[in-house]
Design a protein around this nucleic acid. Sequence first.
DNA 1: GCCGTTTTCGGCCCGACTGTTTTCAGTCG
Length: 612
Amino acid sequence: MDPEVDVPLLSNADLARIFHDIGDMLEVKGELVFKTVAYHRAADAIAHSPVELSAAYRAGERPKVAGVGQAISDKIDELARTGHLAFYDRLVAEVPPSLVELLRVPGVGPRTVRVLHEELGVESLEDLRQAAEAGRLRSVKGLSVKTEQSVLDGIAALETRETRMLLEAAETLVDTLIGELRETPGLISIVPAGSFRRRRETIGDLDLLAETTDAAALVERFTTLPAVDRVLGSGSHKAAVRLLRGPQVDLMIMPPGTAGTYLIHFTGSKDHNVHLRGIARDRGWSLSEKGFLRIGEDGEPLTDDAAELKTFPTEAEAYRFLDLEFIEPELREDRGEVEASASGTLPTLVRLADLRGDLHAHSDWSDGVHPIATMADAARARGHAYQVLTDHSQSLAIARGLTPDRVELQRGIIAELNARYASEEAAGLAPAGSSPDGFRLLHGCELEIRADGRLDYEDELLARFDLVVASLHVGRRQTRSQLTERVLTAIRSPHVDVIAHPAGRMIQGRDDLDLDWDVIYAEAARTGTVLEMNGSDHRLDLSDERARRALAAGCLLSLDSDAHRTEEYHNLAWAVSQARRAWVTPTDVLNTRSRAELLAWVGAKAERLTGA
DNA sequence: GCCGTTTTCGGCCCGACTGTTTTCAGTCG
């Protein structure tokens, strides 16, 4: 019997956590910085790998992952096969996890942790707090009374630290801050950068980048905004504050006309920037946010004379200086975009304007807020040619799922609405901004994949919908094979067109369903069943990694709002940005097609699978 | 620890701010 059978499969996230821990522990030990960086880099790459590494390693394969060499590869192998890593266990014995925790205190780095441990015997956050309160830190060379206060502030901030923001909250805050700074004298422009501009799933700090002729005035206004709780630092070119019950916000000021390299630098990601700087260096230039400087034989800039600095007003020009095509912010994670840019093979990313409709929204007939007509009118006002109404099916009682009788009633209401739209269009009375193809509300449902594995409506009823999205809300804790089989049942139904929020996750809430993902992708591709990228900012499901993997397997995707009220059609923006992070192009997306093409696609799919 | 159409060894991105310094190391982004 194979000894591996009883060892649970570690997810990529589990593996990444272990290698980040190793990096942290080596830092505290005072190991060579490049070695610790190597572990962190490898951990990030593992977290974003589209391949489930533990499964692959068990199958005797070692898929190439950037930043993973022989040593780390062997460690993954040991973890995949045994669930343990002797090297890790030895490190933990040497560097207690409570010591690594100290790195989270702002201003405390590996060097300080080591000194605190060796000289004061500090082993945990609580030890550190007591030492600081008792005034013992100042006895250590290099630390002072000021350090004691900043450590205590840091620990307090750690304890009240809000969780990372979701996109909608980040956008609201960015808009507010920019609005409050816009009238500052001398201000020419101010834009968000950082992870919000890259549209990461969650946002920690906010970054604002400003062009101004009066830096001092802007720093002054920024650091005295009403929402500011503490000023973390402020200089002539940058300032950082923490907002009251809010995140840290960094403001950077750039000389007018030089935004290109500044935007690149402060948009990141860090790995993307490091890659660009390597390319610049190979070509004899040092790249920083300020611009490019010539470097000499010794690798040092020939001059720090600002007049010699090569600057560019736009990002596109700065990229072009390195013979690179412009790289969209959502791609800047060093996941192959720099190479694709160099070879002219960047994808043409899908845009919000490419969407002709939305396949997933609710009304007050199930768990939505607004009436059917209100939802339809709002979708029409967005210029869409169709909106699929997908109220929940009968077994999802908590969401007031529709019985077959109510489905029939709803069908009649939708027909009346569409008759009104048709007559308005025929009379040339459609509102300005409506789709030139006209607008129709399509009748769909969000079909529950029940815990017993059966679908929630009979085939005869399912066949009468314009489009069906299926999803799984109950029985989430079943085994991987049970869950996978349930989703496969839906995928194989001729009447199911879309699998909605396939991973069933809530960001910062619940984990992904434990599915055999490669089997799901393969069967979705074979049957032509669409996998949704759900735009609700607490779902964003599929994730970018999964979507990229699904595309590679040949799947078609949809970008949907899952709106429960009219305002939530804005979720489509998040679905699109998540798709862009996954390198998705317009042809990869079902709802970039016209209404006629969509309906023809649904019909063809049912026919193909019924005949098969 | 990783990596190589300049290298299998010797590099590995860059600058601002802070605090404790008398010229710089640590931390951060």
